[in-house]
Design a protein around this nucleic acid. Sequence first.
DNA 1: TTGTACGCGTTATCAC
DNA 2: GTGATAACGCGTACAA
Lengths: 348, 348
Amino acid sequence: MAGSRVTIKDLAEKLNLSTSTISRALHNHPTIGKKTIQDVRKLATEMGYLRNSVASNLRRNKTNLIGIIVPRIDINFHSRAISGMEEVAYKSGYNITICQSNDSYEREVANTQTLLANMVEGVIGCLALKTKNCNHFARFKEHDIPLVFYDRVCYEIESSKVIIDDFEAAFRATEHLVSIGCRRIGHIAGSQTTGIFVSRLEGYKAALRKNKIPINHNLICFPEDLSYESGLECARKFARLTKLPDGIFCANDYTAISVIQLFKKLNIKIPQDVAIVGFSNYPVSTIIEPALTTIDDRAFEMGQAAAKLLIRQIEDKNLNIASETIIIKTDLIIRESTQRQMLIKSEI
Amino acid sequence: MAGSRVTIKDLAEKLNLSTSTISRALHNHPTIGKKTIQDVRKLATEMGYLRNSVASNLRRNKTNLIGIIVPRIDINFHSRAISGMEEVAYKSGYNITICQSNDSYEREVANTQTLLANMVEGVIGCLALKTKNCNHFARFKEHDIPLVFYDRVCYEIESSKVIIDDFEAAFRATEHLVSIGCRRIGHIAGSQTTGIFVSRLEGYKAALRKNKIPINHNLICFPEDLSYESGLECARKFARLTKLPDGIFCANDYTAISVIQLFKKLNIKIPQDVAIVGFSNYPVSTIIEPALTTIDDRAFEMGQAAAKLLIRQIEDKNLNIASETIIIKTDLIIRESTQRQMLIKSEI
DNA sequence: TTGTACGCGTTATCAC
DNA sequence: GTGATAACGCGTACAA
């Protein structure tokens, strides 16, 4: 740190005042004379004084620091969520420190220790894919550190959650397909060890049941993951069926796009032959042709909500909020991939 | 923080040892007896002791904290860069704290103050678009805090930089167009108040000059920004020319994609009539049809390089590295948008 | 091999 | 209004 920082001691010496007076002046303490306050603040600016937060944090036993653990920062969904958190944190005077778990359990455990050691006042987390239990997060609760999960949440320990209603979103997406006339509706499902993907599958099934469409297990594909490449596998499987599906609800946008692209190569018309719905509203969903109907995952809003909830819990500890769950409303964004009566495109 | 944290004092009492012995034992100090070390560590684990980094930081005058200031976290380029930084920081035992400037000058200034107050040991920054001077970053130098810029760097103050060779990349992109037979080559340029976009324009011009192709100012478009929408404006301008360009080098992928999509609607064949090259290699460049030839901006690698450079400067302060500039090699990724002899697509 | 004593910079609590 | 003093939790020079 070198650089010989200016401290309140230095200010005190120059002004022949005690450090306590300086400290109070800098905090606009009511009992300090107006002139003193002015003098102190003036000198502070002149000498380039800057409060040492580390010392202040130690003394006050308060860090104004929020820890965030995400699988990866460079996944669009998470970077948008983090952006929302930072926004809220900044406005409330909190800093954020970010850890990546890289979807690894061990690394996630290490992350929790780092955050604990750094005396974060609250934690926002999204579980790593490989995390099977979340005891490591329990330590935050032991230390009375509020904890909010988003997206991939932990049900084993008491904690607040910000989620979207995956079931309802999937239900709506599927019903939308029904509403445009689909009756053989397929689904590309996510890993059934992860809650959100279970809900999406269930929402899909529920919509079929409600509309008295039998569930056809040949029309449900369980790829290894939800990557573009795995999506292609499912698309091929669907294409090889003796009878094509007439609509497909995909658990994310990548797989939806892979289906669109493969089907186009096979001269299967979208949405006339098969209508497609994705999930997430990634930027690419507007670029793909036809543009993809999808569920907006509201990542930024989730981040905001998580941060707001967390800060409320930090600042109202006496409220003793045990846990709270916020469900963010999603939107179904209808684009060309399900518009069978094609709209006339605006002229160029 | 409540939760009544276990401190070395608690361990000391239980073991009838002094806090210094505990402290030393926890650091494996050579003069401490093996049994003592064992006892201390055992009890520490039992009681769930965790070092209070805040106190330790204050005492050691060392925080192991790296500050990062980016325009926005949720821009793909930056989130990939941050991901690279976090990776390197984690492996070297550093934490990162992230601020968004939202491309605002005022907020960037506030960010620098936050980081200073938090005693970061080094800073990685990418200038906000609206930042015209960077005196606020000079304060880090005054405090001997190493400073590394990436992408949008500051030339006014002495600092290290990690950049890609935009000139060379643009030159290569343009020459690639020449090599496939283009002679009327257009360019969609970025804001000429930003260094990287000046370099891209210059690289484009240099490649034309080298190939004895006259520079035609009707073929250079300066949109308001490099958004998809602004790209469309340029695309329309190009389309209205009496003689179409036969190749276009775009300063980013968004504008390149807007050109591709508009031209397709106008039945202008890509790459046969007009070949397109973008810049950045955003995920969407593989999705668009035809897939986009582009320059890989190596964001993750830039982030890694910036963090490595910074940490080296933090740890070898005596080396007194004034500043260092790292230029990351870029790749030209050739895809369908410039492949005039269409490859046979792998069968499905 | 271990203990004593002090200080990092700030702030809360007395006292004057 | 202001000052002296102690304390936050830890690390280290010095002493034993």
